[in-house]
């Protein structure tokens, strides 16, 4: 059974703004029957260019319906420029979070919104251009690149959770990995997330940062570091190799390790050394 928040359940059981707008200003259709979910979004603008009415039709699971409903609530009264700024993460956050495997539902919402705006403006949707990487779900390289960049995704499984790519025959896994690698090369630093981290997310992010950023730097000098425990904002680590005997280890910890973790994970973290 999926762990849905009360807000997801509410928007699924009592979806807002279901329906069609006959003379809509913008209509966005994304998804397909084959993919298992699809969303058609309609909006109508008022004289000031603000979204006056918005409706949706969705075929899909509970979180797809809830994401669509949430999106329509978020859109009311916005100008198109404001609407454009809504990210898939915003939709998920509005709902109090979505199970990781269901993040693609929030991405579908964002895609439908973009398609509807493009439809209004008469411009092509960027993402449908690109080259199809995942044939099973018809996902392009541009879509994958974007979702990796915007959500700091690091694994193929993440990409599958967010845009479904790679969730079918798996033949495209190498290509997805290449896209992830190229994005990480351009932006190796996982950007500090604005959203509040849960304990598990925090621990994971600390581990990732140690793994990707800090350990390689220490290893260059023959040192190493191990994560021992995380308790609240206290991060307990053990220094290894040359670091363990280095007189400057305290400086390493506060000036480098703690600074990095504060930058990339959470500013309130305090790093403490545990002696073996």
């Amino acid at each position: 059974m999926w762990e849905y928040t009360d807000k997801v359940k509410d928007h699924f059981l009592n979806p807002r703004n279901v329906g069609i707008i006959e003379n809509a200003d913008g209509v966005g259709e994304v998804g397909s029957l084959a993919c298992g979910d699809a969303l058609t979004l309609y909006f109508k603008l008022d004289d000031d260019g603000r979204i006056d009415d918005v409706k949706f039709q969705t075929f899909g699971c509970a979180s797809a319906i809830a994401s669509s409903s949430a999106l329509t609530e978020m859109l009311k009264g916005l100008t198109l420029d404001e609407a454009r700024k809504i990210s898939n993460d915003d939709i998920a956050e509005f709902l109090g979070g979505l199970p990781k495997e269901k993040m693609h539902c929030s991405v579908m919402g964002r895609e439908a919104l973009e398609a509807a705006i493009a439809n209004f403006e008469g411009t092509p949707v960027e993402e449908t251009e690109g080259e199809v990487v995942c044939e099973c779900f018809g996902v392009t390289d541009i879509q994958i690149e974007r979702v990796v960049r915007e959500n700091h995704l690091t694994t193929i499984a993440d990409v599958t959770d967010y845009v479904k790519a790679g969730g079918g025959c798996e033949k495209c896994h190498d290509q997805i990995q290449e896209i992830i690698d190229s994005v990480m090369e351009k932006e190796p630093v996982p950007k500090k997330k604005q959203t509040r981290l849960t304990n598990i997310q925090k621990i994971k992010l600390i581990e990732e940062t140690l793994e990707r950023e800090i350990r390689p730097a220490l290893e260059k000098d023959g040192g190493n570091i191990e994560l021992v425990d995380v308790d609240g904002n206290a991060v307990y680590v053990q220094l290894r190799g040359t670091c363990a005997s280095c007189r400057l280890s305290e400086v390493t910890l506060s000036e480098y390790v703690q600074a990095k973790l504060r930058e990339l994970v959470a500013p309130e973290l305090v790093v403490e050394e545990v002696h073996p």
Partner: peptide, 11 residues
């Protein structure tokens, strides 16, 4: 037998 209940993406 739907995709969404199994955690996979395909039926």
């Amino acid at each position: 037998g739907s995709a969404c209940t199994s955690g996979s993406l395909e039926p």
